[in-house]
Design a binder for these strands. Structure first.
Lengths: 251, 251
DNA sequence: TTTCCGAATTGGTCAATCCATATGTTGACA
DNA sequence: TGTCAACATATGGATTGACCAATTCGGAAA
């Protein structure tokens, strides 16, 4: 079954496939061929090691890499599983990039603006009525927690997620969540200083109404305006509070 | 320096920190504190193992995870280094997501549209003249290779990268590259069937001109139009060629 | 039939060892 | 004296073997 067991010192030492990558490629192949679907369990490490002709630590290295990419999850005693649930991109890689290259708050908000304005437009165009309820719910949650900044923030984040979801594009949703999570950690530390939570809730409500009314242009405009104001609000919250305006907390 | 050396069977077994994550967190901390910058070399695995009080295989597992996130690169005999170069997000995670959840070509193009239309708008607004040359160069390369589809495609991809770069936002650039790379592999297999390469080159030229003229609205419109046409073009190229319209080739 | 315990399964970790590659040093040779 | 090749060292890559810890599931007992 496995003619790949080549001796090392052979005449042609050209094909050097890093063994750890072999595991990743193997899993990738199984996924592409549909043999592995979300929630499925992978073969035990010991079996994988034998199948691929590598040692167990090598298999483990590959599985760690897959786990870091959010592809798999391992539970001691149970097994290794393909990640279930909605498509998500881990925030880790972006967080590291942010910390390493010193992304600024403004840059991140600008990226959010592009993503979320687009998502809001799509949401209004699609007009999927069953996606409206989650948005409305979060707006309600915001108005109900004007004096509880932390709770308010949770509804805030979930509202933006709901808008992206209403866009109906899983790729965009994954990107929005990845970038949003970059801001979330920072924001959680400064939201206590926020004033005008009411004004923020009103803006979210206007975004919701625009989507509900299937008015893409208004949805885009309201989202753009909201993110601009949110950016400035956070800037003032951070004033003299955080040592640097550089974001980045690796998960 | 490290009082974290807790015995396992102690009276309070509550704090179970998966050892592999310890390595990731350790590196993350060093990065956040500015002790590690792109290009720097990490301590040797054996030293890290001793510092953190874990075994070397565990350290290796953590380093593999970091490598999978694109944070580090290891070179046998030399050491492990923080990834250098421009901020990049690996395409691996998105590829897996695409394969697992069956993202369609249309969904990916829609996401590209949001990202790249936004980037084109930013590029035109910024008007950084020193970012124009790379774009012009790729357009020239496309016109010079109308009969060489593979070469044409390379310039095509690089043009879109150049536009995103001209937007001046590293976050957006990283996202554009990540999503674009999803399409690239598929496209490379079908581009031979393309006709109207000349028309495609013309469209790119118009995008360039709009950015050069600092006309954001036109830049957005041209990019949107281009991506719509490119989507349809690829659909016809794929007709009866690829077994499925589902994208996804994990790197 | 229900409940509980224990064996088998499986991931998590460690230790020791060897190999492959890169790098720096040293010594021989021109 | 200068240059280059061979060797020693540092470091990541991988293996073997073993043991621990958490989960799962089946069989025994109530």
């Amino acid at each position: 079954m496995s003619p790949s067991k080549e001796k090392k010192g052979e005449s042609v030492p050209s094909l050097d496939v890093p063994s750890a990558d072999q595991v990743v490629r193997h899993v990738a192949l199984l996924i592409e061929r549909g043999k592995l679907r979300p929630g499925d369990r992978l073969a035990p490490e010991r079996e994988l090691a034998q199948e691929l002709g590598v040692s167990r630590p090598t298999v483990r290295a590959g599985l760690h890499a897959l786990a870091a990419m959010g592809v798999t999850e391992s539970r001691q005693g149970a097994g290794t599983f393909i990640t279930e649930g909605p498509p998500r991109l881990g925030a880790g890689p972006l967080s590291f990039l942010a910390a390493l290259h010193g992304f600024t708050r403004d840059e991140i908000f600008e990226a959010r603006k592009v993503l979320e304005v687009g998502a809001a437009g799509l949401a209004a165009e699609q007009g999927l009525t069953d996606r409206l309820a989650p948005m409305a719910e979060e707006v309600t949650g915001m108005f109900a927690n004007l004096t509880e900044p932390q709770t308010f923030l949770v509804h805030d984040v979930r509202f933006h997620r709901a808008v992206a979801a209403a866009g109906g594009n899983p790729v965009l949703l994954a990107l929005v969540e990845m970038v949003s999570s970059l801001v979330y950690e920072t924001r959680r530390q400064t939201v206590e200083r926020a004033h005008d939570l009411k004004e923020s809730a009103e803006m979210h409500r206007r975004i919701y109404q625009a989507v509900r009314d299937r008015d893409p242009e208004r949805a885009r405009a309201e989202m753009a305006r909201h993110l601009d104001l949110a950016r400035m609000a956070q800037a003032s919250e951070e004033a003299g509070f955080l040592p640097s305006k550089v974001v980045g907390s690796a998960s």
